[in-house]
């Protein structure tokens, strides 16, 4: 970007089409390899594994032949927090300012060398998107050669999480600056998981830019904290007002319903209202 450009803020976000996701796990592998995420010798216990991108398996709970399943990839949601002001559940609680909300990108960062491992941010996150380094990061001999030089490995005792491949944004921004451009193009900054998904289920871009695919897919409502206007799109735990920047799309009603919690009868009531709105 040129020097005099103060620029309009980006709001990077992701849209995941759950009807396209096959649950292959390529996004998880790409993420681990891109971001130097260490792994344990024995990964049986998933509750202390580091998986910035996790694929959840959802079922509709019905018996055969009506059984249906859905795979839901879950990166960090990069919540805008209540009112979308940047007070994400985790950012506001970190006692040492080790996690920060980037008002220029909408990305929630983690400063590994500042984190002292109190894990309050993990407790605050309802998506389990934050991971603690319970162990020293170790790679099998020779595998260190494959580590990315653009991402710092983390030490034992600190929290880490998906950064929307922030180093890729930095690279794109530097290139734009060098080439005296004010903005970066949509394809210049894409996350590793987006590129790795063989089904093309993941789309990434600027939610503030109507020309970007993510915007077209969900039509975020800027007057309603970015709530999707597309009826097939939803955000997980919308009712908690965390205002995530990761959106999901599904044609299947039960999948959309699984995205949030509803008391008895609430979903049907909400559905009737949405349908009535659509008819008008």
């Amino acid at each position: 970007m040129t020097k005099d450009n103060h620029g309009k803020a980006y709001k990077f976000g992701m849209v995941i089409d759950l009807d396209k996701c096959t649950g292959c796990g390529s996004c998880m592998v790409a993420c681990m390899s891109e971001n130097n995420v260490p792994f344990k010798e024995n990964e049986t216990d998933k509750k202390d594994s580091l998986t910035w991108m996790t694929v959840y398996k959802l079922t509709n709970g019905k018996p055969f032949p009506d059984t249906d399943i859905c795979y839901m990839p879950r990166p960090c949601m990069h919540c805008g927090g209540k009112g979308d002001h940047g007070h994400s559940p985790c950012v506001s609680v970190c006692p040492a300012t080790a996690t920060d909300y980037g008002y220029d990108t909408g990305i929630v960062s983690q400063i590994y060398t500042r984190c002292f491992g109190c894990r309050y941010c993990m407790v605050s996150c309802p998506y389990h998107a934050r991971y603690f380094n319970w162990w020293d990061p170790k790679w099998p001999p020779g595998m260190e050669e494959y580590l990315s030089p653009d991402v710092s490995p983390r030490m034992r005792g600190v929290v880490e999480k998906c950064t929307f491949c922030y180093h890729r944004y930095q690279e794109a921004r530097d290139r734009a600056y060098y080439e005296k451009r004010d903005t970066i193009a949509e394809d210049e900054y894409q996350t590793a998981c987006t590129q790795a998904c063989p089904a093309g289920a993941i789309t990434f871009g600027d939610l503030n830019n109507p020309d970007h695919e993510v915007y077209k897919l969900v039509k975020p409502d800027p007057h309603n904290c970015g709530r999707p206007r597309d009826p097939k799109a939803f955000r997980v735990l919308e009712r908690l007002q965390t205002n995530p920047k990761v959106y999901y799309i599904s044609e299947r009603e039960w999948v959309r319903k699984a995205g949030d919690n509803y008391r008895k009868g609430e979903w049907d009531k909400k559905n009737m209202l949405t349908k009535a709105d659509g008819q008008h």
Binding site: H87, S92, P95, A96, G117, C118, Y120, F132, R156, G157
Partner: peptide
């Protein structure tokens, strides 16, 4: 209880005044 005990003083030095844990410390 903290993952990096040697950095414990960060809670004072780099205090985030919006965090309840800072107030506790």
């Amino acid at each position: 209880d903290i993952g990096q005990p040697l950095r414990g003083w960060f809670i004072f030095w780099h205090a985030n005044v919006h965090s309840m844990l800072t107030e506790v410390a």
